[in-house]
């Protein structure tokens, strides 16, 4: 009985650990004395675009979760792979089943940092170009990503925008040889988030 309670609490701990920064950030609500101001969204937009002779592919996800620590510039994005919506059902099926294997790898996560956070003044309106550097985990592979991003402050509301390219090979996403030369090997990823204060 006691053992099972311990196992249970270990499981709970493991679950909380897994949620990492997001959950920690959630739990830290109210302990503002120890944490810098964090901003977050649960409805971030992540889209990707692939242009090639055979077909142009685009898909959109409107439920990305993102947290930025305004003090340190640490940030994190999570997105459900099955949440990417394509116009054509067949493309969406191929994406989930053949390319990103979303049942095996349900999430993509980016963890990183705004390396020049001192440029951004959250108290005054403006548009700031910053550099974001971190690791993108997708399809079971983790790779370094560095990109320019824009942080815009308008009347206290913060939004973020970034565009960067990834190589499918880097994430071991393989395309059937039949269509290999006709589908783009790079994918453009566009991120747009409107943040709220975490209270």
């Amino acid at each position: 009985m006691k053992t099972s309670t311990i196992v249970r609490s270990t499981q709970i701990k493991a679950l909380y650990m897994k949620k990492g920064l997001l959950l920690a950030a959630g739990l830290a609500i109210g302990i503002t004395a120890f944490s810098q101001q964090r901003i977050f969204t649960r409805k971030g937009q992540v889209s990707f675009y692939s242009k090639a002779p055979l077909e142009n592919i685009e898909a959109h996800n409107n439920a990305a979760v993102s947290v930025i620590d305004e003090g340190t510039g640490q940030l994190e994005f999570s997105v459900l792979m099955k949440g990417f919506e394509f116009e054509k059902a067949l493309q969406q099926e191929h994406f989930n089943e053949d390319y990103v294997e979303s049942s095996k790898f349900p999430k993509a996560v980016f963890k990183g940092k705004i390396t020049d956070m001192s440029k951004v003044k959250f108290t005054s309106d403006g548009s700031y170009t910053v550099t974001v550097s971190g690791q993108l985990s997708l399809h079971g592979e983790t790779k370094d990503v560095t990109t320019a991003a824009t942080i815009a402050v308008r009347g206290g509301a913060v939004s973020g925008h970034a565009e960067f390219g990834i190589l499918l090979d880097d994430y071991k996403i393989s395309i059937q040889s039949l269509v290999k030369d006709k589908i783009s090997k790079t994918v453009k990823i566009v991120v747009n988030c409107n943040y709220e204060n975490m209270k």
Partner: peptide, 12 residues
């Protein structure tokens, strides 16, 4: 159903 991040997310 597409899974859960902080919330469970349903599409379509």
């Amino acid at each position: 159903c597409t899974g859960m991040l902080m919330d469970v997310v349903l599409v379509r």
